[in-house]
Simulated assay, not measured.
Amino acid sequence: MGTWLATVRFPDGTRKYARYSTVVECMYDRLYSTACHYGDMLPDGQQCYRSAVTGEPDPQWPEAKRAPIDQLVPVEIGEEANNCTWHALYCPQRAMVLGPMSCDHMDELQYRYELVRGDDGVRHLCDFVISDAREDRRPNAACGRRVPGQLLPFHRIEPYLGMELDTLPEDLPPMDLYAEWDRDDLCRECLASQLPQ
Rank of each mutant, 00 (worst) to 15 (best):
A64I: 00
A133V: 09
K65P: 14
C190R: 00
C103E: 08
M41C: 04
Y20H: 05
A35V: 03
Q60F: 05
Y178I: 08
A192C: 09
M27G: 04
D120S: 10
Y90Q: 01
V8G: 01
A88Q: 06
L195N: 07
F10P: 06
R137L: 00
A81Y: 00
R30E: 14
Y49Q: 15
Y49C: 09
R188E: 10
C84Y: 15
H37V: 11
P153E: 07
S33Q: 12
Y90W: 08
R112E: 15
D136W: 07
K16F: 15
L152T: 04
A52G: 07
Q71P: 02
D184K: 14
L191C: 05
C26K: 13
F10H: 11
L89I: 01
L42R: 09
P139H: 03
M96V: 10
T54F: 07
L177G: 00
F10R: 11
Y113K: 10
P174S: 03
T22G: 01
V53L: 05
A35N: 02
R134W: 06
Q197G: 11
D136K: 03
R146S: 06
L165I: 08
A142N: 04
D29L: 12
S33E: 14
L168R: 05
D132K: 01
P139F: 04
M96K: 08
L72P: 07
D136P: 01
R138E: 01
D119N: 14
Q60A: 13
Y111D: 14
E170P: 14
W181V: 10
V147P: 07
A192R: 11
Q71C: 05
P196Q: 03
L186R: 05
M41L: 13
R123C: 14
Q47L: 10
F128R: 12
V24K: 11
L177D: 00
G144W: 11
D184V: 10
A35Y: 04
Y38L: 15
R183N: 14
L186V: 15
V97D: 08
R146H: 05
V73S: 10
Q71S: 09
Y111E: 14
P169G: 15
C190P: 01
M96H: 01
V97A: 06
G2C: 04
E76R: 15
V122E: 01
P148C: 02
